[in-house]
């Protein structure tokens, strides 16, 4: 099939009123098609929101956690100060480390407070010293740093957070994939529904098709009457569905720290533009499905 040019596309939407009248109007399959397109678009909005939100989350978690690391120095009390100084010196020489800072006693106490209460006599306990490392964008070579530290600061343990980060990013990416699969399934189901509806319409109009064939109508002419109808129905149904879905997403509670990732479900900024993609996509799916159904049916007729 040759590629339709712009004029052909315009003609498709403005339509040939004569050709449209050839097929009798059908009230109830029309409403069913509209409804399924709207429902599928509504679901597609949520799948899209899920995919986008988890995508953002994966990037955020990856970024935030990837660019920090913690060095823990466990040593006999009298050596801690010396080892901390040595570790800070090593870190200051390590490429990829933006800043390295030993946490003060108050900060360490604050970190432990949830577990031991605020009145912890920190000085009396062999608490390891923590050093917070912030990486540059390029990051450092964790393996090399570990080797060097093990030689110069025997009590140091480097934690680059990858233990936490990896499963989280992995989970977020899986969710995003799930969102994508849901979108594909939704549009696949829409194609199936429209194919069934189109087949029903073609079967119901067998006499119309036979008459049109007898008086010399080309298959393309007959198919177009059906294709145009179903495509426009799918577009308008999907438009209504995406508007309602968009409203529903907008009315969800805003992202909160306490709520975790679920409340982050939604669109941000330019992400809302994705909603505009749904109706034309539904139209394209309906066009393809009806075209296929019509051509297949017509080929069987004399």
């Amino acid at each position: 099939m040759k590629r339709p040019d712009l004029a052909q596309l315009t003609r498709f939407f403005t339509g040939d009123p004569q050709a449209d009248r050839m097929v009798p109007p059908t009230g109830y399959t029309a409403r069913l098609t509209l409804f399924s397109a709207a429902a599928m678009a509504f679901l597609a909005v949520f799948a899209l929101a899920l995919a986008l939100a988890t995508g953002r989350m994966a990037v955020r978690w990856g970024d935030e956690l990837a660019r920090t690391a913690t060095l823990r120095i466990s040593a006999p009390t009298d050596q801690i100060a010396a080892q901390t100084a040595a570790a800070l010196r090593v870190l200051s020489q390590t490429p990829g480390v933006a800043t390295a800072r030993a946490l003060g006693p108050d900060e360490q106490r604050a970190l432990l407070a949830p577990w031991f209460g605020p009145d912890l006599p920190l000085e009396a306990l062999p608490i390891p010293q923590l050093i917070e490392i912030v990486e540059t964008r390029a990051g450092f070579d964790a393996q090399g740093l570990r080797l060097r530290l093990s030689a110069e600061v025997p009590g140091a343990v480097l934690d680059d957070h990858s233990r936490w980060r990896k499963p989280l990013v992995h989970a977020a990416n899986s969710l995003r994939l799930l969102g994508g699969v849901a979108i594909v399934l939704i549009f696949g189901t829409m194609a199936a529904m429209i194919t069934l509806a189109a087949n029903a319409a073609l079967a119901a109009n067998a006499q119309v098709i036979a008459v049109l064939r007898l008086v010399g109508a080309r298959d393309g002419y007959i198919a177009q009457a059906f294709v145009r109808r179903f495509t426009l129905r799918a577009i308008s149904g999907a438009f209504v569905g995406s508007v309602l879905g968009g409203l529903a997403v907008a009315l969800l509670p805003a992202a909160q720290d306490e709520g975790g990732f679920l409340t982050g479900l939604g669109f941000q900024g330019l992400g809302w533009l994705w909603l505009l993609v749904i109706p034309p996509l539904a139209g394209a799916v309906a066009f393809g499905a009806t075209q296929f159904a019509a051509r297949t049916t017509l080929k069987e007729l004399p």
Partner: peptide, 20 residues
């Protein structure tokens, strides 16, 4: 003989013109 029953006689007679 079969016609498009939702169109008038005149439109049915003119059908071959319309489809071509």
């Amino acid at each position: 003989v079969q016609f498009l029953d939702h169109l008038s006689v005149a439109e049915n007679v003119a059908l071959p013109l319309a489809v071509s």
